[in-house]
Nucleic acid binder design. Sequence first.
RNA 1: GGAGACGUAUCGAAGUGGUCAUAACGGGGCUGACUCGAAAUCAGUUAGGGAGCAAUCCCCCGCGGGUUCGAAUCCCGCCGUCUCCGCCA
Length: 425
Amino acid sequence: MIDIKFLRENPDAVRENIKKKFQDSKLPLVDEVIKLDAESRAAKQKADSLRSNRNKLSKQIGMLMGQGKKEEAAALKAEVGKQAEELAALEAQETELSAKVTEIMMKIPQIIAPTVPIGKDDSENVEVERFGEPVVPDFEVPYHAEIMERLNGLDLDAARKVAGNGFYYLMGDIARLHSAVISYARDFMIDRGFTYCVPPFMIRSEVVTGVMSFAEMDSMMYKIEGEDLYLIGTSEHSMIGKFINTINKEEALPYTLTSYSPCFRKEKGAHGIEERGVYRIHQFEKQEMIVVCKPEESEMWFDKLWQNTVDLFRSMDIPVRTLECCSGDLADLKVRSLDVEAWSPRQQKYFEVGSCSNLGDAQARRLKIRVSGKGGKYFAHTLNNTVVAPPRMLIAFLENNLNADGTVRIPEALRPYMGGKEVIG
RNA sequence: GGAGACGUAUCGAAGUGGUCAUAACGGGGCUGACUCGAAAUCAGUUAGGGAGCAAUCCCCCGCGGGUUCGAAUCCCGCCGUCUCCGCCA
């Protein structure tokens, strides 16, 4: 959500940004919202002066009543009554207009960073950097579900009966590995100075609309029947929501938090949910990191955040690369986003295991997360990034640490969380 | 789930239909005076949102409605907190 004042003063920049994102159908919204906004302010001004008048007269009525001058009071009452209808109409107009303005403003995308490559969709994302040597072993690497099943670590048949497609049972060493990765990632982030949190796994609609665009909400969020609650799609939602309606002291920033939660996603419209395995699923667990900071520091934090994920994967001997999201692939609230992708020796390509985003002031404006400093009050910037999200991450882990004999090597960093085991199989 | 109480600034809290919203009273914070310094004391100062070039005006007493010339105050709905009971970990 951008500032309406910015839009008023820079309509061309806003249009240019919409074009960059290949959302040309939204172009008319710019002129539309400028017109509605002007009407809205005009209505407000008129209504304000009527209200001012009413306040004055009502005060006089109060005084007259106090002095027992009932007849004079009655005359004033009649005068207030005369403008009541006009005011009511104006107030209805005010409400309607400002609701329309907000509705449109929610649809206008955040101004993207100048560095964002221009492209229509994810096929035009741009590789930035590779970390580690992508290895292709000289033996065949089976499909990840098969590796898990061979180790008696996965039961999709039972999961389908119990919950349906897109769910899974992890068992034995694989389940333990799953927990180990989460615990390791938690401690990894704690060691880097982040504060560990376990947040609510459900949030109100007010928070939902504050942290994501309508498109994301529709395709991702599960609603609890009969309640104003949604299952979170990531702990980012409850962690950013934590700061709703707050004014934060400048000295207290940045907030650097790492949170654990299960994540629930409809994956509506996504391909691949039919795909056998644990790549795209309705439920997974994730260690997340979020930052709330001053605007001038958000780019610096962006770089630190994705670096954390790269370092974590490298500490488990998994080759990764970073991929800058192009303009068309960027969700409407994001200024910039960078995917971390892990190497798949089986597919001989990289696949997404994490996503780092700078939302600028978009979430902060919607949720009213403000900062007070010497220079006055302003909206904070918010960022989020995946530390690690198994079981998808386990795909990369298993493929990259698989031995020729079918056993799986446990990297040293993870052994303390696996009861000291060096290998499973 | 049942019963009750409550929600006002940074905190505690007064206000229960009008001249009471920067909002009594008290505490905290900040600034200054006094002091070698500190404490104590004294003085001053300590919300938010919006419209307007400005003067100024409007909104804001958990949130949303309603009654009224006028609502923190009365009515309805919702949210939240606390206490007791029940139930379940």
